[in-house]
Structures are given as structure tokens and as C-alpha cells.
Design a binder for these strands. Structure first.
Lengths: 215, 215, 215, 215
DNA sequence: TATGAATGAGCATTCATTCAT
DNA sequence: GATGAATGAATGCTCATTCAT
């Protein structure tokens, strides 16, 4: 017999409380921005109270920075899980692009947070010691694919890996981030699967055409 | 006898006041977002007072919509001034792209406002009767160039003009909009002229390689 | 016929509103101190709302400084109204002391504010440009009486006017300021008229005995 | 076998913790008043945590009362240590005054607490059973000196010992308690040793002149 | 048209205090 | 006896907005 049955409602769950506040904040900041997000709304969504927000994070701004840090930690892990070693250069690049673009559509909060941070000119990103020292390892992956392709005579040589990576990301980012204004002004909605498929195919062909073009 | 001497300073400039409030609002909304911008700051920058903001625009949100409308009116005029008729298809497309990208860097407030509007999922854009009916005529310009190029055997055929236009815009938009986060995570700052030149050249070559590639 | 009868409730009264807030603040700060006084209580007592407190004074602390300034302005005026020119030195000094002591009992808020300011080590007094330059003219009055008395052979000479003034004020201040703790520990309540009369008489005799004593 | 190794650091010091909280509270209440002092600051200064404050004292207000009680217990002990039996009446009174005034300057927290309690009109002092029954024995000391002096023909007779004691204390209290406001308004700083010496000498002469004056 | 005065609702943050271990 | 976690009720202050002139 259990004299002490597990409580249905866990009242003490420090790590859980912290995490729930962080998740709620991620969602609210992504939706409303730093100024627009409300601390009471964050606490309520987290199922906690406002006081705990300050207990764990100190202030709204520090919570915002913690959200940015957590977001990038997630992204870094995702990147590290990607294995392109078994693929030929052309397929590898296509797989990388597809994976990144999928991540953007699967994590809509990501774009809200990034746009917000650009609105603030990256000042909170810079204020984080954790983040300001992060350098994305994925650029090295791109460099490696470009080198393999060039050595095999499939790609043109002399391509700057960072420029190429930024271009590749931007193709997917722009249509995800700006889908509402694009829709308002052109009538096209890239949230629709088929429209997104079409333009993504164009993007892949465009990247490939560039890689294979003569200098 | 002067029982009522004339006031020394009587400033009445209705159209000027309205315009100054609109300009100030554009700048503040771009910098701080809809929630973050303050009506008193807007009035002060405009050299007016809060009451006039309400007199002319009714509310903060309506002022925000007026800013969006004004922004697009400017853009539409800019587009209409562009004359590509004398150029060959390849040069025409390059000139169009270059012109659009330049506009983005010359009007940083533009990007702040667009990003903010995407944060709000385009709801204010939709609420404007003026804007929701606007269809950008530039897509027709793109279609025309594509047709001319295909007819001349220089471009592949079957390209969707809207997808191509969106891709072209996105290349410039992404590096302008996200320059702060890109800088934070990669160390590269596309606000620097030479870095921007390099990637823009890559973009032009990429668009061109795609246009000229076989289906 | 009056087509426009005066309104019973005056809604617009800038100077009145400001003054009522200041009066309410004086009372609340005297009773509860700077930390203990509540902005909402002040506004309510003033018959205004919290927003106006900030409109007119900027912050709770600045309001506190304004209260100190106003308090001393009142005191300075009171001092300037005192005319001792027609009295003999001994009577003049007695009249001055009596007048000051009466002021302390007639303005209980005065003592609360002064004690509070001493609790804060005078930092708000120093922060006021108006106050930090005030030098009480009453010391000159004391000096003049002392000189007259010494010249007439009635007073000892060489008395420092400021020390004497401080001593004189302190006699009345201490029993007014500390009447509660004195009462708690000795059972005597100097708020009672007769008890206050007795000790005040002792104080007058003491000052006089000193003035007339040999060096 | 050690299944439960002893904790390396086990700090259990009940009496020490209580005392450190009391000391920290004395300092904080003296500096900031009852409302201005913060429980977390008190705990931190005490090197303990907020919970223990409630464990030992029940509430912030009860802690405040405990501080008052402790303060007076210290004072009472100090008084009881004073031995004036070997001195002549005039010297005895001077020694008593000097001793009391020195205590005020040596214990600045004392004045902060007393002023604060007067701000609250002595309500917490009254709420303490320990304190409300205390009657300072020092008044009996004064009475005894006065009687001795009168019997010896050195002092005038009929002096109320309590009034005299209060006057004597007040002389030192006022310049210590109000040194900041006095400094702000007159420029004199009685924290300076020489200035304090001068006025204290005046005070001693004044008391003596009164004692020796004719009725 | 223009402006100082006024307001209520809401904001981030802090407080003393209590709970669970 | 001691401590980290949790909370509700403020608290000072700001916001967009409106009133009266």
C-alpha cells in the first residue's frame, strides 16, 4: 500500500516552473515583441505567477535574453544532428537547404524572435555573453560541401561559403517571415503547401544553377 | 487703442503639422514597433502635441495604418519612375534587382515597418482599404522581362513571375533586415559596402544563371 | 440674468490642483515618511488622481523635495513677520523663543518632515537648489539682540549667536518631536498645556540665567 | 560503512542567528525607518534568510518592537553602570550630561530609531509590554543630585527633576538628531568635534547657571 | 487649429509573508 | 533549525486618450 500517493498537482517543481515561464515567454515575445508582451500574460500562460518570473529571471528584459539564448541552443542542437556525410555535393546542398527551410516553417516563433531582435538592432543578442561568442558551425559544413563539389569538378570554385549560406537561408526566411505582407500585396500565400513547394523548387534550381555555372 | 494686441507668434500650418506627425510616427514605429512607440514621443519629435495626433488621425493604431499607407504610396511612386524599356532582358532584370535592393538600404524605416507588420500577421495592412486593393504593378514588369527573354531564347521558359520577383526581393531584404543578427552570429556586417557588393554580385549571377539554365 | 452661472465643481484649476497635491503630500510625508507615504493616498487626499502628481511634480521624490521647499518658504515668511525692535534685549529674546516654540507646536507636520529629512541625512534638502542656498536670517536677529544686551551690560559677551540660536530652538524642538517616546518612558506628556508651560518657563529662565551669568 | 556521510558544513547557531538578525534590523530600521527597511535586506545583512526572520520574530513589526526593546535594554545597562556617588553636585550633573551626550553620538542608530518611533507617535513602544512599564531610573539620579545641591545651598530649590532631565537630554539630542538639517540651513556641522565641544560647553554653563540662579 | 489639464486603466516590479521540504 | 520556492496584494509610475478652453 502506498501511504504517500503521488500528488496529482505538483506544487514544487523548480525546473519545471522555470521552463514553463521560458516557453510562455518565447511564445509571447514572438507574437507581440518585447514591448508588446505582457508579464502577466506570460505568467498566466506559464501557469505560474508574475513573482516567479522575477525570481528566476530578474526582469522582463533578462527573460527576453534568456529566451534568445534558449532559442539558439535549440537551433545549435538541431544543426548538430544533421548528417550529410553520405551524400554527393549537389544532394548534400539540397538536403541542407531543405532542412533549414523546414526548420523555419516548423518553428514560427523563431522568426518572430529574430525579427524582433533585428528591430532592436541586435542589442540584446550582444548583451548576452553566451550568445555573442557563438559562431554557427554550419558555415563550416557549407564550406566543406563547396570544396568537395569544386574538387569533383561539379561546382565553380571561389564561392564564399558565408555569402552562400546567408543567401540560402534568406530564400526560405524571407517567404516565411514576410508571408503576410507578401500576401497582402500580391495575393499569394506561401503558407500554402503547393505554393511553397513551387518556389522552393525554384530556389533549389537557382542555387544549383549558380553552383554549376562557369565563373 | 489696442485692446487686443495681436499675438506675436501665431503658427497655423495644418498640412505641415499633419505631415510632421506622420514623418515622426514613421520613424518611431520603425524603431520601436507599434506597441513600443509612444504617442508623446511622436508628438515631441513632430514638434506638435499629443492632442493633434488624435485630431488628425483618431488613434495610435489609425496613425500606424496611415504610416503604412504613406510608405507604400512612396514605394509605388518610386516603382513607377523606373524605366527599363531600353534595356536587354538580362540587363533589365539586373537593373530592376539593383534598384530594389538600393531602395531597401536607402529606406531603413521601410524594413522596420514591414517586419513589424509581419509580426502582427499583416492585420493592419488588411484593415486599410487603400492598401488591401493595391497590387504591385512591378510584377507585370517582371513578367514582361521574362517573356522578352524567353522569346529571345536567352531565358528558360515557364518561370512564375511572382515567385521570381519574391526571390529577387528576398535576397536583398534578408541581408538588410537581418544584418544585426547575421552580424552577431557570423561576424559579417552587410552594412559594410564591400561585403554588400560581394554578396549582391553573387545574387545577380545566381539569378542570371537560373534564368539561362536549361529546364 | 446670468446665463452662465458659476460651476459649483470647478474642473479646471491648475494652480489649485497643484497646491492641493502639495498640501496632501505634506501631511502624508509628515505622518508616514518618504517610504511610508503612498502616492495613491496623497492623490486621494488631494481630491485628484495619481497621474496629476506626476504631471506636476515628476516623481514621488521630487514631490517630497517640493514639500520641503514649500515648508521652508512658509517658515521664512513667518520669521520675517516677527518684529522685536521695540523690546528690551531680555524681553526680545524671550519673545523670540516663545514665538519659535509656538510655531513648532502649531505646525506638527513641520517636525515630522524635519525628522524624516534627518533620517535621510539631509540628502533631499541638499538636492534642492532653492534650499541649499537659503541661510536663515533669524540668526542675525539673535546676534543683534545679543549685541544690544551686551552693550547695555545686561548680557555676558562673547556668545556665539548660532550656538545660542540652536540651543534655544532645540529646547522647544526636542519636547515637541520626542513627546511620544518621552511619554512612554517617563509618563509625562508635554502635549498637555500645563506641563509644557512649566518646562518652557524653565527654559526661559535657563536662557536668561546664562545670558546674565558672568563669563 | 558510511551510508550517510556527515555534511561538511553544518551551521546551526540558533542564538547567533537571532542576534545577527536583530543587529541587522537595528541598523536597517535606523537608516530607513519601519516602512523603508526591507526584510530581504535585513536577512542579507544578517547573513541569514528571510524565513528565519519570521521564525524568530513573527513579523516585520514584531521585529521592529524587538529592536526597540533591545535598544532600551542596552541603554538601561549603560545608565546603571554610571557611578556619580563620589562627585560634588555640580560635577555630578556635568558628568551625567556629558555621559548622556556622548552616548547619543556613539550610538547614531539610537537616534534614528527614536525619531522613527516618534514619527509613529510611539505606538510600537506602547505595544511592548516590556517597554511600557519601564521607567527610567536615571530621573531618580537627577533628583538625588538636585536635592544634594539644594541641601548644600549650591542649587536653587524647587526644580522639577524630570523637566530638568528632559532639558539636559534634549540639548545633546537636538544637535545630534538634526545635524543634517542644521548643516543645510546654517552651514554649521556639529559632527565636527570642535563645534560640538563649543556648544556643549555652552550647554554645561547654561545648566549650571540655571541651577545656581536665584528663584 | 491648437494646447495645457485631466483621467482610468494598465504596466513592470517589489513587498511581506507562507508553503513544502 | 534552516532554506529554496511560491504567492497575492500592493506600489510607483506610464499609457493612450479626452476634456475644456
Amino acid at each position: 500500500m502506498d501511504s504517500k500517493p503521488p500528488k496529482l498537482v505538483v506544487k514544487r517543481d523548480p525546473e519545471g516552473t522555470r521552463r514553463r515561464i521560458l516557453e510562455a515567454a518565447k511564445s509571447q515575445f514572438a507574437k507581440f515583441g518585447l514591448a508588446g508582451a505582457r508579464t502577466d500574460a506570460i505568467s498566466e500562460v506559464a501557469g505560474s505567477n508574475e513573482r516567479m518570473l522575477y525570481y528566476y529571471f530578474g526582469s522582463k528584459e533578462l527573460l527576453y535574453v534568456a529566451v534568445l539564448e534558449s532559442m539558439y541552443a535549440d537551433y545549435a542542437q538541431k544543426e548538430s544532428e544533421l548528417d550529410l556525410s553520405g551524400l554527393q555535393p549537389r544532394e548534400a546542398m539540397a538536403a541542407l537547404a531543405t532542412s533549414i527551410w523546414a526548420h523555419l516553417w516548423d518553428n514560427p516563433e523563431w522568426i518572430g524572435l529574430i525579427n524582433n531582435e533585428n528591430l532592436h538592432q541586435g542589442r540584446y543578442l550582444k548583451s548576452s555573453e553566451k550568445l555573442s561568442e557563438t559562431i554557427s558551425p554550419v558555415v563550416e559544413v557549407v564550406r566543406s560541401i563547396l570544396t568537395r563539389g569544386a574538387d569533383a569538378g561539379q561546382f565553380r570554385s571561389g564561392i564564399d561559403p558565408l555569402d552562400f549560406y546567408v543567401t540560402l537561408v534568406g530564400m526560405g526566411y524571407y517567404i516565411a517571415s514576410n508571408r503576410f505582407t507578401i500576401n497582402a500585396f500580391t495575393g499569394r500565400d506561401y503558407a500554402h503547401w503547393s505554393d511553397r513547394q513551387n518556389i522552393s523548387e525554384m530556389h533549389l534550381e537557382m542555387l544549383d544553377a549558380y553552383l554549376r555555372s562557369a565563373t
